[in-house]
Amino acid sequence: MEVRTIKVFTTVDNINLHTQVVDMSMTYGQQFGPTYLDGADVTKIKPHNSHEGKTFYVLPNDDTLRVEAFEYYHTTDPSFLGRYMSALNHTKKWKYPQVNGLTSIKWADNNCYLATALLTLQQIELKFNPPALQDAYYRARAGEAANFCALILAYCNKTVGELGDVRETMSYLFQHANLDSCKRVLNVVCKTCGQQQTTLKGVEAVMYMGTLSYEQFKKGVQIPCTCGKQATKYLVQQESPFVMMSAPPAQYELKHGTFTCASEYTGNYQCGHYKHITSKETLYCIDGALLTKSSEYKGPITDVFYKENSYTTTIK
């Protein structure tokens, strides 16, 4: 009895394709271990004539594949690729409408935090270190965002349907971005203890939790000093293409032309909904596939993004 075979390709990165001759009487799992086709788990399936010449994702289970996976995804987590594939199996079914010149995501599976993050990423200057993220990001900007969303979920250790947080998501993504040249110098002034300067680099240099107003941050924000008295913390120097200011959701007025974009969060910790506000020729609110415009805006804002380049204080 002759062994019926077909020729397929296996890959971990969709760049390096490895030619395989597979036995049609055995499952993919018996031949390769966990195997995925377009995100779908085909591990328990036997090869079919229609699979001839198709590319299958496999887990990096030998040295060659491990090197290829690390170079593309910059992670050695053995569960990463499987999590990416199972997320992709959902995100490829989502709709990605162009809204006001940006790629958004039609609401499904509690994905409003991903839509808000995706919209924000198209408006701030950011370059990702893992080629996987950078490639998928370019495709997302062009309207094909399924891979990018699935990668975000995998890097953030999230599953489809789980509630997510924009600030946490951005923080994970910033860790995989090139923020080497970003720098922030802060000064804390206390009447009792004097003053202390701190220099922050990388992710810490672009994120701040405690106030939404970048102007206020430049002037000074009140913080408790270690001595128990009130101290003032203010920005001395900022070198970065953008800054992200966050605070627990509270009524906040966004003035046209003073910011790049913002995240609105309605609801409580267990259950809520994100919308995205962007400042173009007027203010726009993007909620999944829905767009509304207004000249002014007041609502429960939790993150505001500002364009920056270089700032030095005039406070002496």
Rank of each mutant, 00 (worst) to 15 (best):
S279Y: 00
Q197V: 12
M244F: 07
E264T: 09
K275E: 01
M24L: 12
H51D: 14
Y36R: 01
S50K: 11
P249Q: 02
V243C: 04
Q20H: 13
T11F: 06
G101A: 07
A117Y: 10
I105D: 01
H74Y: 08
C261Y: 01
A136H: 07
E144R: 07
H48M: 14
K158N: 05
M24E: 08
L17H: 09
M24G: 10
I301K: 00
C225E: 07
Y269I: 15
I152C: 03
A40Q: 14
G220H: 00
C182I: 01
P300H: 12
T5L: 12
D77F: 08
I301Y: 00
S294H: 15
Q123F: 01
E71Y: 04
T27G: 07
N89L: 12
V189T: 13
H48I: 14
T282R: 09
T313H: 13
Y84G: 04
K92C: 11
H18P: 11
N178G: 06
D23M: 11
C261V: 05
P47I: 06
R66N: 13
Q195Y: 10
A247H: 11
T292M: 09
T258A: 10
F9K: 12
M85R: 06
I152L: 11
A115D: 01
I124Y: 01
T266N: 06
D77W: 03
V99C: 10
Y155D: 08
E162C: 03
A117T: 11
L179T: 03
A289S: 12
E281T: 09
F32L: 14
D38N: 11
A250M: 14
T226E: 11
Q251G: 06
N61Q: 14
R83S: 07
P47T: 04
K7P: 09
V67Q: 12
A150L: 00
G161L: 03
T55S: 12
D135R: 08
V236F: 03
E204V: 08
S171H: 15
Q195L: 13
F305A: 03
Q270F: 13
G220F: 01
K275Q: 05
S279W: 10
R141L: 11
L88G: 04
Y265H: 01
L200M: 07
P78I: 03
N100W: 11
H48S: 13
V22T: 10
Y72L: 08
L59K: 10
A142S: 13
V243Q: 03
